[in-house]
Amino acid sequence: MTQPAIDIIVPVWNRPIETRNCLVNLLNHSPNARLIMVDNGSDRETEKLLQEFSEGLDDRAFLLRNDVNQGLVKALNRGLEKGEAEYLFIVKNTSLVGPGWLEPLLEFARQRKDAGLIVPGLVLKGRGKVKGKQIAAIEVAQGSFAAMLIRKSLYDAIGGFDEGMDGGTWCLRDYARRACRSGSFTFLVPGADVQYEEEVQLGSETRRRENLQKTIAEFRVRWGQDSSYCLLMPKGTDPEMVRCRIELLLPAARQGCLFHFIVPSHLHTLLMKSGHGSLHENITIHAVPFFHTAGTVQKMISRILSEAPETIVVAGIDGMSYTGEAPLLPFAELESRIRRCDDRRD
């Protein structure tokens, strides 16, 4: 099968050595792609490097220049505006792709037409740690500026990133929510990993903190406060009913709600085999050990509450017996709450 037309947007601000390595790897491992390089007010050495790449690649490269550093998000948006291919990739100039990095992402995009944003496995340079290591593809709450596929049709529908946000996590979450509202979802797809570097924080800490607080406030005005729930599934629960519960809650997980399912060990095995344990990173299935004491479930709940004290414990089956300290929210009430949240977000 012929590889689809691809545009790769690379925002650049200085770092000539890393930039050269990034561009060389992109050319070696994505031969049918066009590079859209956005020089974000770089120094003369980096500017000259980009000019040399642009002139040497002819039609395979397009160079844009900003006189001053306008920030990552504005640079990305300027590059995305010039994208014409079916698939747009953003790759930071400090990221390194390897052999076969594109194929798993493109294949998944062809199989899942609802996949608007796709992130590869990301390995932190020098540490060998994989961010979000998965065996199978899974929906996630946000993409990554280090490397990400954006379907052109999605970009045409929702536009670029919000330049008024933080240029990091909250900007990415906002974009994923906007994609979701248009019917497209964000996935992490395992395969050939991409190496990335952690973001270097620039400017004063006070200014960054103020901008972050402003961004979070704007995000919550736009999308509401995220909620966390812990659902208890007692022994003897019908596996099909649990699968239906998970699928029912999937749209809420896409909108930021966190769900912890505590289930018997045999039920956990069945859910993992059916793929319900890897539908979305906001849905976690916890297995109660086959041999356990009366307090095991309560300890599991306590661990979840210690990480997210606002978590509400829910009866997976209305009327189930429960001896724990936290009051149980009926599942029917959880459904009602989620519907009200969906109505407000729409």
Rank of each mutant, 00 (worst) to 15 (best):
P239N: 02
E218A: 15
L232T: 01
Q213N: 11
E218R: 15
C244L: 12
Y229W: 12
L231W: 02
W223F: 06
W223Q: 00
N211H: 11
R222S: 12
R222T: 10
Q225N: 12
R208P: 03
P239H: 00
S227R: 15
Q225T: 13
Y229R: 05
C230V: 11
T206F: 09
L212T: 03
W223H: 10
T215W: 05
T237C: 12
E210F: 08
N211R: 15
S228F: 08
L232W: 04
E210N: 08
R220D: 08
P239F: 03
P234K: 04
P239G: 03
K235H: 11
R220A: 06
D238M: 09
N211T: 03
K214S: 11
R209H: 07
G236A: 02
E210G: 01
D238N: 15
S227H: 09
T237K: 06
Q225Y: 11
T237P: 02
K235G: 11
A217L: 13
T237I: 14
M233G: 02
Q225F: 13
S227K: 14
I216H: 05
C230I: 12
L231F: 04
M233P: 00
S228I: 01
T215I: 07
E218N: 11
R207K: 10
N211V: 07
E210V: 13
C244G: 10
D226F: 09
R243P: 04
K214C: 05
E240W: 08
D226P: 08
M241R: 14
M233D: 07
K235N: 10
C230H: 01
D226Q: 12
N211M: 14
V221S: 14
R243N: 02
E240F: 09
C244V: 05
T206V: 10
R222M: 09
R243W: 01
R222Q: 13
M233L: 15
E210C: 07
W223R: 01
T215R: 07
M241G: 05
V221W: 09
S228V: 08
Q225M: 13
Y229I: 05
